[in-house]
Design a protein around this nucleic acid. Structure first.
Lengths: 153, 153
DNA sequence: TCAATAATTGGAATTATTCTAAATAAGAAC
DNA sequence: GTTCTTATTTAGAATAATTCCAATTATTGA
C-alpha cells in the first residue's frame, strides 16, 4: 500500500536491535532473522496491524516467511515485553510495539486506533481480594473526527 | 452443567422482560422467543459466557435454537444497549448483561472474570482532536487469588 | 386475516489461529 | 571451525469463532 522511501531503513536503529537481542535471550528465545524482521515491521508503521497485516508487510522484504512464523515471532515479542497485544473488537488481534503506558482510542466506524499516553495518576481501584494485577488495558470506543465529519453530511 | 431448581425461573422478572421488549422495539428489532431466551440465559449466570457458552445453555430449554440465531440475538441485545460485548483475550468474545459502569478483572491463568464497579471519577484524559467518545472498556489483567495460591505450592 | 418482511434454521463458507512433521538454523560445547 | 542439540521455520492441515446463505417460519402492521 504505502510506498516506502528508496533506501529502506531496516531496523530503525541499533538500539532497538540490541534491545531485541537482549530481551529474546533473557526470555530463553533465540535471535532469528525472522524475529528481527517482524519486530522491524512493527516499528516501521505504528498503526496497530493484525497478525495478517504483519505477515503481508513482512513478506515484502522476506518473501519466504510463513504465516506460522509470524505468529510465533509475535508471540515471542509479546512474551519478551517488547510488544503489546491489543484486543479492540471481535476478530483479529492487533499488535503494538509502543510499551509506554497508554490507552487506545478506537474508532468503531473505520477501525483507526490512536494511542494516548495515560495520565500518571495510578488508577485507584479496589481489586478483588487477592488479585495480582499485571497490567491495564484501556480502550476508548467512539467515532474519530474524520468519520464524525462524514456522518453529518 | 448446573441443575436448575424445579419450577424454572424463566425471565428473572417482568421488569427485564418489559425492558427487553421496549429496547428491541425502539431499535427496530422484533421481539422473539429466542431473543427473550438468550437474554434470560445471560441474566441467569453472570459469568461472562462466550457465544458458544450461551448457545449450549440456551439449548437446554430450547433445543432447536441454532448457532446463527444465538449470534443474531446477542448482536441485537448489544445494539439495544442491554448487553456489553467484552474482548478480554484472543479468541471468543464474551457477553455481559451488567450495564453499570464497571471494569473487568481478568485472570490470565484460569480465565475468570470479576466485575468491579468503577470509581465515579470521570477518567480525565485528553481525547484525540474531534474524537467522540462512546464508552470505555477497561480490563485489568493479572492472576486471581485462587490461581496465585496454586502457583506458589 | 393477510401481506410484507424480519428472524430463524442448518449448513456451508470465511476468518483467525494453532498444530504437525520434516527441514533448517542458532548457539553451546568441543 | 565443526559438531551436536534443540529451538525455529516452513507449508499445509486442522481447529475455533464467526458470518453468510437460501429456504422456511414468525412477527407486526394494515
Amino acid at each position: 500500500m504505502t510506498r516506502l522511501g528508496k533506501p529502506m531503513n531496516l531496523v530503525a536503529n541499533a538500539k532497538f536491535e540490541r534491545e531485541l537481542g537482549e530481551r529474546l535471550a533473557t526470555s530463553g528465545f533465540r535471535f532469528t532473522s525472522q524475529r528481527r524482521h517482524v519486530y522491524d515491521v512493527l516499528l516501521q508503521k505504528l498503526d496497530h496491524p493484525t497478525a495478517d497485516d504483519v505477515f503481508m508487510r513482512a513478506k515484502r522484504q522476506m518473501p519466504e516467511i510463513s504465516h506460522a512464523t509470524v505468529y510465533n515471532c509475535l508471540a515471542a515479542l509479546v512474551q519478551c515485553g517488547l510488544v503489546r497485544q491489543v484486543q479492540l473488537q471481535r476478530g483479529a488481534t492487533r499488535f503494538c510495539p509502543n510499551m509506554e503506558e497508554h490507552c487506545h482510542y478506537y474508532c468503531d466506524t473505520c477501525g483507526a486506533v490512536f494511542d494516548v499516553t495515560m495520565p500518571a495518576e495510578a488508577p485507584a481501584m479496589a481489586s478483588p481480594k487477592g488479585f495480582q494485577v499485571d497490567h491495564y488495558d484501556i480502550a476508548v470506543h467512539g467515532v474519530c473526527a474524520s468519520c464524525a465529519g462524514k456522518r453529518k453530511r
